[in-house]
């Protein structure tokens, strides 16, 4: 289990990196390496050139402006998780990040790398979908911003073109007065989720949900919004019956086939339960934040 042969470059500027990536059709970006290195060690990936972006200063740091949390490409999971400003601006993020792998992996793996890797069961893509964020990419033909809904295609595939570098991700701050919740079911702590559900809920003065967003990972080939479930809950007081119906509607969106870790039927049950629990939890938090 040793990596195959490749060439390696570690440019200092984004411009050089873009040129390097474009120079070879089999080049790949190397960020934290926490997904790419296992693939190399198993010889499941065979890039001819690795463009290591870790020394590019423009790709470092987290900032918050205009209702957006801007996470540059070389931001490690753990940095985002521990950033006090981010905790204030959107507590959902830290809560979710704690479910990504383990601390030593989060110390190296990057948030944007996780988005680019686009595992259908990964947590960070779910957060981007749930919040309606976006990814900014830059290639030889310039910079463009891709909305979360359009970014994730299917398992391990995104709208990023091969010669583009994802330079940053933009996560909206949590809308004022909203409650949030995320939980997932894994067989082992830190594993990719069998299924995970995130919820953001805002209530009106009468306790009815006037803004509700739900998303799930692990249930399809990409993270998905649970629109049917949102519809069923929207405008209701989130009672038992509505939660149950929403859970069932969410379960109906589970398309993942049986695999060695879970049957489709089991994933359906889990998603239904998590939707009920997460909506209730987010609503409870919304009540305290009103």
């Amino acid at each position: 289990m040793k990596p195959p042969l490749f060439r390696y470059q570690a440019p200092k500027t984004l411009k050089e990196a873009v040129i390097a990536l474009a120079s070879d059709p089999d080049a790949m970006v190397l960020a934290g390496g926490q997904s790419l290195l296992p693939a190399l060690n198993f010889r499941l990936a065979s890039p001819s050139l690795l463009v290591d972006i870790q020394h590019i200063d423009e790709l470092k740091g987290i900032s918050i402006a205009h209702g957006q949390i801007i996470v540059k490409a070389m931001t490690r999971h753990r940095e985002l998780e521990l950033d006090e400003r981010v905790r204030q601006a959107n507590p959902l993020i830290a809560e979710t990040m704690a479910h990504v792998a383990h601390i030593p992996i989060r110390n190296r793996g990057t948030v944007v790398g996780s988005l680019c890797h686009a595992d259908g069961a990964a947590e960070v893509p779910l957060v981007l979908i749930l919040l309606g964020g976006s990814v900014v990419v830059e290639g030889p033909s310039g910079r463009r911003e891709i909305e979360a809904d359009k970014f994730f295609r299917f398992h391990l595939s995104t709208a990023r073109r091969r010669d583009e570098i994802a330079v940053e991700a933009r996560f909206p701050v949590l809308p004022a007065g909203s409650g949030w919740a995320f939980d997932e079911l894994t067989r082992r702590h830190g594993d990719y989720a069998i299924a995970g559900v995130g919820a953001v809920v805002r209530l009106d003065a009468g306790g009815h949900a006037n803004d509700i967003r739900l998303a799930a990972c692990g249930v399809a080939s990409r993270p998905i919004r649970l629109l049917e479930a949102e519809k069923l809950l929207s405008g209701t007081a989130l009672g038992e019956a509505e939660l149950k119906a929403a859970g069932k509607a969410a379960a109906d969106l589970v398309s993942a086939p049986d695999d060695m870790h879970a049957t489709n039927a089991y994933r359906r049950r889990v998603v239904a339960a998590l939707v009920r629990r997460m909506v209730a939890k987010a609503a409870a938090r919304a009540r305290t934040r009103q």
Binding site: P38, F42, R187, R188, H189, G190, D191, M260, H261
Partner: peptide, 23 residues
């Protein structure tokens, strides 16, 4: 997890779930 073909589908620690301290 041996597939019907005899291929071992989980020849790794990602899918062969040896427990951590949390389990």
């Amino acid at each position: 997890e041996f597939e019907p073909s005899g291929n071992l589908a989980n020849a790794n620690f990602v899918d062969f779930l040896m427990p951590y301290a949390t389990e």
